[in-house]
Amino acid sequence: MFEIGARKNIPNDPAPSRWSYKLLRLMLSPFLRRLVFYGVPVFLLMVVTAINLYDENRRDQLRAFYDEIYLSVVERPEFMVNLMSITGASDEVMQDIREVVSVDFPISSFSLDLDHMQKEISGLDPVKHAELRISSGGVLEVKVIERIPAYLWRREAGLEVLDETGAYVKNVGSRLDYPRLPLIAGEGADLQILQVEKLLKAAQPLENRLRGLVFVGERRWDVVLDRGQVLMLPEEGAASALERIIVMDDAEELLARNIRVVDFRIRNRPTLHLKEGAMEELKEIKLMQLRPSE
C-alpha cells in the first residue's frame, strides 16, 4: 500500500548520485590518483622530516642516537681485537712493525683498516710480504716474510745489504756482520743484480780469490781478485768473457802471474797490464837465462 504521490522506496536499487559518480571518475583519473596516493604522502613525510630536523638540538640528538646504536654494535666483544701476533719476523723488524702499526688495543675490528696496515707493513724495507687477518678470539695476526740478505753493496754512504732482487734491506756497519755475502760496488749495481748472479756463478772456480764485483760507469763489470788483480769485462757477454779468462787461467795459469789487470773490454783484443816492476823482473830473468851458466 503506497500513499498516492509518495515515492516508491525500492531498497534493491542502489544508484550513485551524480556527484559521487563524478567524484569517483575524478579520483580514477591517473594524475590525481598518483598525486593522492604517492605525491601527497611523500610531500607530508618530507614536510614532517624537515620540520623535525630544523632544530639543531634534535639533529644532535639524532646523531647521538645513531652513534650510540653504531657503537653498541661495533663494540660488542665479538668484534673486539685484543692483541697482535707477528710471525716470521726478526726482533728488529717486529719492533719496526709495532712502531708502524700504532694501534691501542683493544680496538673494534670495524675501526681497523687492514688494507692500509698491510701497505704500511709491506712498505718496511726488510719486509718482502705481509699478510694480515683477524682470527677468532680477537687476535690480529700479522704474517711477515722478510727479505733474505744476498749481497753487500758498498756505497759512499756506507755498506748496504741487498736481497736477491736487488732490493734494499738495511745498512750495516761492517763487512764482518755478513762475512759470507759477496761484495759489490758501483752506482747502479742494484739494478743489474741478475748479472751479478750470473757472474758469480761463472766465477765459481775463482771463489777463493774473489774479493768482489765493481760496476763501472753504470755499464760494465770489473771482477776484483786478491793481490790487487782486476778482470775488466765487456758490456756484452760479460759472463762468457769471464769464463774465457778462467779457461785461459786453467791453461796458462794466467792469474797466478804477476799481472795487475786482465783487460777484456774488447773481446778480440785482450790486454794484460803487468804489475809495477814486473817488466824489469822479467828482463832480469831473461838475462839470467841468457847468461851462460857458471
Partner: peptide, 18 residues
C-alpha cells in the same frame, strides 16, 4: 541515466580505471 551510471560506476570501480 541512473541505471547507466550505476553500471558504469561499479564497473569502473572494479576495473580501477576511468
Amino acid at each position: 541515466e541512473r541505471a547507466i551510471r550505476t553500471a558504469l560506476q561499479s564497473a569502473q570501480k572494479l576495473a580501477n580505471m576511468r
